[in-house]
Each structure stands twice: as structure tokens, then as C-alpha cells.
């Protein structure tokens, strides 16, 4: 192993806690609605400013070796888990502040738990990331136009209106209730998805052009909790004591 090419972190716990931004109480209006499903309220909430990085995740697997690349059980992650790492405690030089990817839902969830946090829900993530702004829609569409993963340091872009960065155009992010995206493989509807689409159709008529949102929901639908992907990372959130404000 060439020492020069490898970044090793022996220090634990990580000294600097992840920066958080406050998501004020907000209304989430789902793109796909099930019958009777209305807008919901999310927040107030503290949201990690950036996605979790390789370096932060390394501290986690050091403390919880059952989540290291060599020890994780197949129930909790598929064979691609931390595929880009060079070993249990090493990743390529220069990638310390890249968002960690190739992580499963189980690992992401446990990471957040270990920080006294949790994964955001779909509603929380969609609101906090300002996903429906046309600027972010455009950003995502441009991202799809470039194949493959091109990662970079987190935080290297202007923050959104809540102070978050990197929610769009860098990676996908796990959400706690990803499996609520019950879009079947056949996105044109069908017997198994009537519940999704009879509600969804009405909204679609209102807003048929949210291609980026369609894709995000299709992506979540395709996931299984043990899946990992080169483009899939996560960030955590924390409930505010006593409802905050």
C-alpha cells in the first residue's frame, strides 16, 4: 500500500461536529399523493449543512467495526458497500471531504443514530433541499446530462435558502422512509400502482414537468435497504428540543 496515496485517520472521535442549519416549520406538498393525502408540516429541524463525508464515515466505522467494509453482514449492505474505499480504514487521498457514497440505508441510519440524529424523511429532505425550485430542477437535469459520478468536496457551492449545500447535482441521498416511494417499476401505472397514480394523476396534471422530482422518486422506488450506489450518500437531521422555534 502506497502511503502517499492513502489517507489514514486514527483519531476518534471526530473533533468537529457537523455543521447544522435550521429548517423552520414548513409545509410539504407531495408530488405523488395517495387518496386523502394532504400537505404535511415538517420542522423545525436541524439539518446537516452538508452530506456526510468519507472522513466522518471513517470515524463511524472505526467506532462500529461491524459497519466496516470487511465486516458488514450481507443483510445490511450489498457487495458494493464502500466499494471506493481502499480498505476498512482508508480511502484515496484527496477524498476525505468527498461525500461518502456506496453506503446502505442500514449503515446510514446507524451512523445518524450514533450521532444522536436520524435520517430525514422524504418530506423533510424535499423541503430542506428546496427541491422544487426551478433552479434546483435545472441543476438536477444538468447533472443527469453528465454520466458517471464526479464527486468533489462537500460545501463547495453556495448554500440554498436554508443554508444547506450539495443537495442537488452531486449525489442522491438516503431518506428514512425511502420505501414509501411505492412507484412500481412500471412508471406508467398499472394495477399495482393505482393507489399511487390515481392520486398522482391529479397532481401531474397540475405540474407535469417536474422531471427531476420524478427521477428522484423513481430512484427511491428502485432501492432496497441494503443497496449501495456510487451516487448515493446521506446526511442526518436532528429534532429540536421541545419543538424549537
Amino acid at each position: 500500500m502506497k502511503a502517499a496515496a492513502v489517507f489514514l485517520l486514527f483519531v476518534f472521535p471526530l473533533a468537529v461536529p457537523a455543521a447544522e442549519v435550521k429548517l423552520p416549520k414548513s409545509v410539504y406538498s407531495p408530488l405523488f399523493r395517495d387518496p386523502g393525502e394532504a400537505d404535511s408540516v415538517v420542522g423545525p429541524l436541524l439539518v446537516d449543512k452538508t452530506p456526510v463525508t468519507n472522513q466522518e464515515f471513517l470515524a463511524f466505522v472505526t467506532a462500529f467495526p461491524q459497519f466496516s467494509k470487511s465486516k458488514i453482514q450481507p443483510l445490511f449492505a450489498d457487495g458494493g458497500y464502500l466499494a471506493h474505499w481502499l480498505g476498512d480504514a482508508a480511502f484515496a487521498k484527496g477524498e476525505a471531504r468527498f461525500p461518502v457514497t456506496h453506503v446502505s440505508w442500514f449503515a446510514a441510519r446507524r451512523y445518524c443514530e450514533s450521532r444522536g440524529k436520524r435520517l430525514p424523511t422524504i418530506a423533510e429532505w424535499e423541503v430542506a433541499s428546496d427541491a422544487r425550485s426551478s433552479r434546483n430542477e435545472a441543476k438536477i437535469m444538468a447533472w443527469y446530462g453528465r454520466p458517471g459520478a464526479r464527486l468533489r468536496d462537500v460545501g463547495a457551492e453556495p448554500a440554498n435558502k436554508f443554508g444547506l449545500t450539495d443537495a442537488h447535482g452531486l449525489i442522491w441521498e438516503w431518506v428514512d422512509n425511502f420505501s414509501e416511494s411505492i412507484m412500481s417499476g412500471d412508471s406508467r401505472g398499472g394495477s399495482s400502482t393505482e393507489s399511487l397514480f390515481c392520486g398522482g394523476a391529479a397532481l401531474k396534471a397540475k405540474d407535469p414537468k417536474m422531471y427531476a422530482t420524478f427521477m428522484r422518486f423513481a430512484f427511491r422506488s428502485s432501492l432496497n435497504a441494503r443497496y449501495t450506489s456510487v451516487n448515493l450518500g446521506f446526511r442526518c437531521v436532528r429534532d429540536m428540543d421541545g419543538g424549537g422555534e
Binding site: 395517495d34 386523502g36 393525502e37 442500514f106 441510519r109 420505501s179 414509501e180 435497504a225
Partner: peptide, 15 residues
């Protein structure tokens, strides 16, 4: 949610 995830059962709670 963990058990459902491990089994691959998808579910959603409605209002």
C-alpha cells in the same frame, strides 16, 4: 421499519 427494510416490504402510512 428495520424489519420491513430487511424483508424488502414497502409500506406507507396514510393520514
Amino acid at each position: 421499519s428495520e424489519l420491513a427494510a430487511a424483508l424488502g416490504v414497502r409500506y406507507k402510512r396514510l393520514k
